[in-house]
């Protein structure tokens, strides 16, 4: 049986200090996910599923597909979808800071963890700006977005250029960056985000649907907005490895947009996660088969799904309208031509 790459000396265990979490993560990675896909590979004869590299990529695809729409549904319907893009760029500054520290000091930190830290701080800053800026909130978002990207680019060039090589993988995303440690981080992130949204689902929906009403009902609206921003930071950092900084916000937005015609908010989140899952697994597979960028492929597949669904909904509405009023439409048309109304 293949295991998901044995943790060699080069991959530091982030969860070393927390033995029980480490054990659970190892169990899930190797004995549940790895063994499950091995079995699937044996049954279907698809060798790709048995490769540890692709097993990690598919795990990342699954996590991204679930947590992206889970958080994105609240952002899109509060009309603050840009927050995802902004936090992705501040996460880039975090990655650059992590690589910078690794290059200049003698300590070793995972760039993903510094990215998470910087993005979470930026999330709280962004939320405060949005609260105070009122109508001009996209201006303050644009300032934080470009500002943090500027910090990142300065840090990258401040060293001898050694870290510039590593930064490319984070900018555009790559299946190769999903190491065992990173897969574990993403898995934990997935569990934490799902648990948080499940617990805070009701107040989050209330605040999203009617912020003034939620305030009047005595809900601590600012607290929940901050929670949502920090969760967004977590999702963005987790999904960044495959999607890349520049494209990661797509997974918060496109599957949600594809699912807006579903009736009921909970069901729309589920539908968005399904659309997301189709996009990420298809994208990862195509990316592997044709050796093309994973992030870009996933986004293009997602947009394809979105367009197909929108066209389908439009088409069905058109057909049902035609079916409901065929006689009237025909008689109106003949009436118009017979008295010469519309023809001239």
């Amino acid at each position: 049986m293949t295991t998901l790459l044995s943790p060699g000396p080069a991959t530091p265990s982030v969860f070393g200090q927390v033995g029980s979490v480490d054990g659970i993560v190892r169990f899930l990675l190797d004995d549940v996910w790895g063994a499950g896909l091995d079995l699937l590979a044996g049954l279907s004869g698809i060798d790709m599923l048995a490769s540890p590299f692709m097993q990690r990529a598919y795990l990342a695809a699954l996590c991204i597909a679930v947590i992206g729409p889970l958080v994105g549904s609240f952002l899109v319907h509060r009309e603050v979808a840009m927050i995802g893009d902004t936090l992705a760029h501040s996460a880039f500054a975090g990655v650059a800071a992590g690589l910078f520290v690794n290059a200049t000091l003698s300590v070793t930190v995972a760039p993903l963890l510094t990215a998470l830290l910087v993005a979470a701080v930026a999330a709280l800053l962004v939320q405060t700006l949005v609260d105070y800026a009122g109508a001009y909130r996209d201006t303050s978002l644009a300032i934080v977005l470009t500002g943090s990207f500027a910090v990142g680019s300065v840090l990258v060039t401040a060293t001898d250029g050694g870290i510039a090589v590593g930064i490319n993988a984070y900018l555009f995303g790559s299946l190769a960056t999903v190491s065992r440690t990173n897969a574990a981080i993403l898995l934990v992130m997935g569990v934490v985000v799902t648990a948080a949204v499940t617990l805070a689902y009701r107040p989050l929906v209330y605040v999203t649907f009617d912020e003034v009403g939620a305030r009047a009902a005595g809900l601590p609206v600012t607290r929940y907005n901050q929670l949502l921003a920090v969760l967004t930071a977590g999702v963005v950092v987790g999904a960044m490895q495959i999607m890349g900084v520049i494209l990661v916000a797509a997974m918060l937005v496109i599957p949600v947009a594809a699912a807006t015609s579903v009736r009921g908010f909970k069901r729309s989140i589920g539908a968005a996660a399904c659309a997301g899952l189709l996009a990420t697994t298809t994208g990862v597979t195509l990316s592997y088969l044709y050796d093309i960028a994973a992030g870009g492929t996933i986004v293009l597949v997602a947009i394809g799904i979105y367009a197909a669904i929108k066209a389908g909904v439009r088409g069905r509405r058109y057909v049902s309208r035609r079916r409901r009023t065929p006689d009237r439409a025909v008689s109106a048309a003949t009436a118009a031509t017979s008295d010469g109304g519309d023809d001239k």
Binding site: F209, A217, S261, R263
Partner: peptide, 26 residues
């Protein structure tokens, strides 16, 4: 509390009437 403009703004949020009324209990 019934906010202003609820009758004139129709958002795209795919929420049902029952889901909205359930918020009263939240």
């Amino acid at each position: 509390f019934v906010p202003q403009d609820v009758a004139t703004t129709n958002g795209e949020m795919p929420i049902t009437v029952r889901e909205a009324v359930r918020m009263g209990r939240y």
